[in-house]
Design a protein around this nucleic acid. Structure first.
Lengths: 270, 270
DNA sequence: ACCTGAACACCGTTCAAGT
DNA sequence: ACCTGAACACCGTTCAAGT
């Protein structure tokens, strides 16, 4: 993000009297040498505009004002590029120092921050689901999450699984959010780019559909329709998260669920 | 599967004396009229052989001995075909009648069966993640899962979320399984088709890598390496499932976690 | 050293034309 | 009614050639 080597002098804006130079100005700006960073940046621009299905090497090249083949000097393949985008997702992610007394809050913060980052670019959850955070750069994040679980006192087998479970939950939830958003967008207007709130319309339509089902065949679906399709997905996210946290908490050695402050219960290291 | 309209007489096998007729015989067999069923079947064959990235309309057509454009008379798009494959996944899925006393076992059965079905075709989890079981045909399965949760006595808001949570977990877990399998396959041999057990080799390699990390920076990752990458993923699947089930159980109205048989606690319908 | 141009082997989808 | 052939507008990747 804040790259000190990035201090290329930007050309001054055109003075008021020089009128409409060919569109070369933009092209010249784009001529700053290619780099992995710039390619990733352009890829995000294309992603947000066209979605993952519209993200092609050719579109990225066009965004940079460059030939497709030029990209392959900096990036070995499209998969490589997608991995760079995935890794970028973790940039500046806060790593808390594990506090046994606040482990649930720390996991909540971790999950909410993860969801927020996934929501920051279109179809990002789809990219995230296709990757695993076991590259050298990302291991500190995995370690940090495991640290929270283990210093909280969770048994090793549970802690080992909890990281996967939480990550899968975040990715899966946001993926589904995106699907609904896409469906709403393609239904209402053709303006695919903006995340317009006219998806509430679809939510109502969906609820009407559930309500129209035969009562004797679908009693539970009818009863829960209002809560399964809701506009505030923040609340839904927190509920699912809470279910997982309660499940994890049930494995804590001391039966008293949430001691306000339990002193000196060291995790069995080694 | 058992389609009674599928009784087209198969041509007898070539008699011993007629030698090597041009390869027309196979072509003639393939000439049984096209149908959505046959297209889906061929698509699964291609999927298992080449994976989702190698599944193209052209390959499916080739598998059927037919031109690509012929497919579009029966299937409106590739997405349509993928949705048919997704729906097929549920064929013959057992729907239990909800039993409040055995709700946890019923959910376990549901989840294990779901995973087994996803594992029955390559990359099936990726297809599943891209869909939502809210088409008319699949609603009974959603209803059935919700029924288990609700008659068990879970609060509505929890029951509504539980279905999503479980489904996401199953898909996510199997997706990851597939990623490891692929990675192992591309590393060891080029024979992509078979699910060879030479992936144990990669598991060891992975564990060695974790063990090689600096001890002061990655204590937890090192401690848990053995349980995070294991060959028996069945066990790992059950552990994650158990965490979710315990979380859900914590929302049951009666504090006593698992009353052996609690009579007459009806779910608040309406 | 870095980028272009052209090519290769693919895609999904459409549509006039054949039988 | 059902399928073919050809075309359109795309793909990811490679590689010789330019500057």
């Amino acid at each position: 993000m804040t790259d000190p080597a990035d201090s290329t002098p930007a050309p001054p804006p055109p003075s008021p009297w020089e009128r409409e130079r060919p569109a070369r100005t933009r092209a010249a700006v784009a001529r700053t040498p290619l780099s992995r960073e710039r390619i990733v940046e352009a890829a995000f621009t294309v992603l947000d505009r066209q979605g993952l299905d519209g993200l092609s090497m050719r579109q990225v090249a066009a965004e940079l004002g460059v030939t497709v083949s030029a990209l392959y000097a900096h990036v070995s393949s499209k998969d490589d590029l997608l991995e760079l985008m995935y890794t970028r997702l973790f940039d500046g992610f806060e790593l808390p120092r594990p506090d046994p007394d606040r482990w649930q809050e720390q996991v909540r913060d971790y999950a909410r921050a993860g969801r927020r980052r996934l929501l920051s670019h279109r179809d990002m959850a789809r990219i995230s689901m296709a990757h695993v955070p076991f590259t050298a750069e990302l291991l500190p994040y995995v370690e940090s999450l495991l640290a929270i679980f283990r210093t909280a006192g969770l048994p090793d087998r549970i802690a080992a699984e909890a990281g996967d479970l939480i990550s899968t939950y975040i990715d899966g939830f946001v993926l589904e959010e995106g699907m609904w958003r896409d469906r709403a967008a393609e239904q209402s207007g053709e303006d695919t780019s903006l995340a317009r709130p006219d998806w509430r319309e679809m939510a109502e339509e969906m609820q009407d559909y559930f309500a129209s089902l035969p009562a004797q065949d679908f009693p539970h679906l009818r009863a829960l329709a209002g809560m399964m399709v809701t506009d505030s997905s923040d609340e839904r996210f927190d509920i699912g998260l809470e279910i997982i946290l309660r499940g994890l908490a049930s494995y804590l050695p001391d039966a008293t669920k949430r001691a306000p402050s339990d002193d000196g219960r060291a995790p069995d290291t080694t």
